[in-house]
């Protein structure tokens, strides 16, 4: 028994060490403007919150949620901004940057000549995207608490949810990147991303849409992410969050599986 289990345990620790070395490379590459760009990433959702949540919110006034709670428009929009910034942050790292390293810099061609394997590269890059995304999420939650859009306890609960959202979109982005042919394909991807951003129950409750459209919207990953985080920061009491978590876990697992399979095929020619 022991002999059967032990080598696998050793292997797991070697694999995580090798994944960490991929993450480490990104830390080493952090310098100059790129660093500034990274740090300032969290201002974007904040700007949206202030403009749409507060500015447009002043025109709207209070909103009655399907559950019956009456909240300010900013309170309604803030968790959606958090969810979509977790999405955007994760995708930025695992699509544009990942694709550049895979296809243009040929970085991984050098890495696979070492003991590091494709799925370890995928994990290492995802971990890096998560470090970045989680920092944004934490900063945004602090702002939400400061603006009285949620309570500290709820913010604490929402943090791991935001991390999960990042993981799911990060893995998805990585899988998508392995199918990309050129930069032009990314135009389509960012368009799709923007459509999700507009219509995932972000700015108006999905209940406002016609039935068929509403079902469509409720099947998208960003809607599930918004639903999960809004439930946590605003406090709706249904059990739908379990479905959200399950959905996001499946997206993450599928994304990682496809990404590492595809990478093996692309790299081990």
């Amino acid at each position: 028994m022991v002999t059967l289990v032990l080598p696998r345990l050793v292997d797991v620790s070697a694999a995580s060490r090798r994944s960490a070395s991929v993450t480490e490379r990104n830390v080493a590459a952090l310098k100059s403007v790129y660093w500034l760009l990274l740090v300032s990433g969290f201002v974007e959702p904040l700007l949206y919150l202030l403009s749409i949540g507060v500015g447009v919110g002043a025109l709207i006034g209070d909103l009655t949620l399907p559950g019956g709670e009456v909240v300010t428009y900013a309170t309604f929009v803030a968790p959606a901004m958090l969810a979509s910034s977790a999405m955007t942050g994760a995708l930025a790292e695992t699509t544009f940057n990942f694709f550049g390293k895979l296809k243009y810099m040929k970085l991984y061609d050098g890495v696979i000549a070492t003991p590091v394997q494709p799925f370890e590269i995928a994990l290492g890059e995802l971990a890096w995207a998560m470090l970045r995304g989680s920092a944004y999420s934490a900063a945004f939650l602090v702002v939400m608490v400061a603006m009285d859009l949620t309570t500290p306890a709820r913010a604490l609960a929402a943090f791991p949810a935001a991390v999960l959202v990042g993981f799911a979109f990060g893995a998805l982005g990585m899988a998508i990147s392995t199918f990309m042919r050129s930069w032009q394909d990314f135009d389509l991807m960012s368009s799709a991303q923007f459509v999700l951003f507009l219509f995932s129950g972000t700015f108006v409750p999905a209940e406002a849409y016609p039935t068929v459209l509403r079902w469509l919207v409720e099947a998208t990953p960003l809607y599930r992410a918004v639903h999960l985080i809004r439930g946590l920061t605003v406090g709706t009491t249904d059990w739908g969050w379990l479905l959200d978590v399950l959905y996001l876990l499946v997206v993450m697992a599928a994304g990682l599986l496809i990404a590492s399979r595809r990478m093996s095929r692309l790299l081990y020619k």
Binding site: S21, A29, M105, L107
Partner: peptide, 29 residues
């Protein structure tokens, strides 16, 4: 236990000369 020098240099353009060696060493643990 292998050292590989591929036909086309695939050095990391975002790192310095020294970092190219140190980060690569990390891939070997």
């Amino acid at each position: 236990r292998l050292g590989v020098c591929p036909q086309l240099d695939n050095l990391d353009p975002e790192l310095t000369v020294r970092e190219n060696l140190t980060t690569y060493a990390r891939y070997f643990g």
